[in-house]
Amino acid sequence: MKALTRRRWLLSLTTALLALALTAAWWLAGNALRPADLYTGWLLLGLLLGLAFFNARKKLPFLPLLAASTWLQIHLYAGWLACVVFALHAGLRPPGGRLELVLWLAFLIAALSGIFGLWLSRWLPPRLARSGESLVYERIPRLRHGVEAEVLALVRQAEKETQSTTLADFYLRVLAGYFARRPPLLAPLAGDDARHHRVITELAALRRFLNPRESVLADQLGELLEAKRNLDAQWAGQRLLKLWLFVHIPLTYGLLVLVGAHVWLVLHYAHRL
């Protein structure tokens, strides 16, 4: 068994056993008329703070606070455990109070966004790697602009050298729009290559109108189209890999604020009672 697979099995099993033990303890505490919800509440708060510290660790790379990969493993499995503790604490049905409902929804969305991010970070990178050369996200707009300029120059060159407008017409009819288009947000999930293949097919269909010189230029055009496809794939994929964090992290901080309010309210009224 590979090392990473072994690690995954080991940690999954440990988390499952811990979750079972916690559930049993919660059940026993409930039966013994102990404040089981208070225990699970404090445990959940601790887990949430621990989960949130993963992001703080990233800001302190110069401190020997364990490797980020270890932190991610802790984050993942503590996250699964937090879901179980949350279910024990708040139940599987939406609570009645407004604050509790918002809190319940915030946890749910934060957890789901985390699960989506985990799946995405395992599913998408191999597809990006197979798509073509890996690129730095910030450089892609400049590279895309360069490809667009090359395509335009190529079409002009074809028109000038061959006195033929076949490629120029194709540019106006198809390519200009194709190059102006940016891939939609969820394009990586849909495997959005259909439009690219349609453009390639249309270019192939033009071949019967091209002389040998134009054919050479059309070959170069095909390579630029391939470059554009990879640029779009890398850009859209990396954008999605970054964007889910813009949901997960702010929501986590929001959740912590709501949890603070929840704890204050609980302690406040518990004291009065």
Partner: peptide
């Protein structure tokens, strides 16, 4: 590249 999510945490850590 099959594992890298292009998060650039490595680049930021280097800069920091």
């Amino acid at each position: 590249l099959d594992r890298c999510t292009r998060c650039d945490d490595c680049v930021r850590a280097c800069a920091a």
